[in-house]
C-alpha cells in the first residue's frame, strides 16, 4: 500500500539535526522513504476504534514504585568519571561553551 502520511527529506534533516545524527544528502531520500513506510503502518492503527479509551502511559497495570527520601547513593566521583575522556579536578570537561 502507499503511505498516506509521507515524510519529506527536509523533515528528515530536521529530525536528524535535533537527534544529533549525521545524515548525508545521499541518505536523505532513503530515510524519508523508510520513515514514511513506518508512518504508514502507524496510520493503519487508526482503523482501530479507540473511542472512550484513555491513552496509555505505561505498558502494564503495575502501580508506580516509589523510593523513600533517604540518601543511599553518590560519593563515588572516580566511578562516575571513569569513562570521561578529559576529566579534570573532579569535573567532566567539554569544549568551552559560553552564551
Amino acid at each position: 500500500m502507499s503511505p498516506t502520511f509521507s515524510i519529506d527529506t527536509a523533515t528528515v534533516r530536521r529530525i536528524a539535526t535535533l537527534a544529533r545524527i549525521e545524515v548525508t544528502d545521499a541518505e536523505l531520500s532513503t530515510w524519508a522513504e523508510q520513515l514514511s513506510g513506518i508512518m504508514g503502518w502507524i496510520e493503519q492503527l487508526k482503523e482501530v476504534n479507540t473511542d472512550g479509551v484513555a491513552p496509555m502511559s505505561g505498558g502494564t497495570d503495575l502501580k508506580l514504585t516509589l523510593r523513600p527520601d533517604v540518601v543511599t547513593d553518590g560519593d563515588m566521583v572516580d566511578q562516575v568519571l571513569a569513562n570521561a575522556t578529559e576529566a579534570q579536578d573532579g569535573f567532566f570537561t567539554v569544549p568551552k561553551m559560553v552564551e
Binding site: 523510593r67 527520601d69 543511599t72 553518590g74 560519593d75 562516575v80
Partner: peptide, 25 residues
C-alpha cells in the same frame, strides 16, 4: 526540600565537592 534527588538516592546538599553527589542515574 528533600534529602535525596527526585529519581535517585544521591544527596542534595549545597556546596559539596564536584560530582561527589552523583549516582549513575
Amino acid at each position: 526540600t528533600t534529602k535525596a534527588k527526585l529519581f535517585s538516592g544521591a544527596p542534595t546538599d549545597f556546596g559539596a565537592g564536584p560530582n561527589t553527589q552523583v549516582s549513575f542515574i
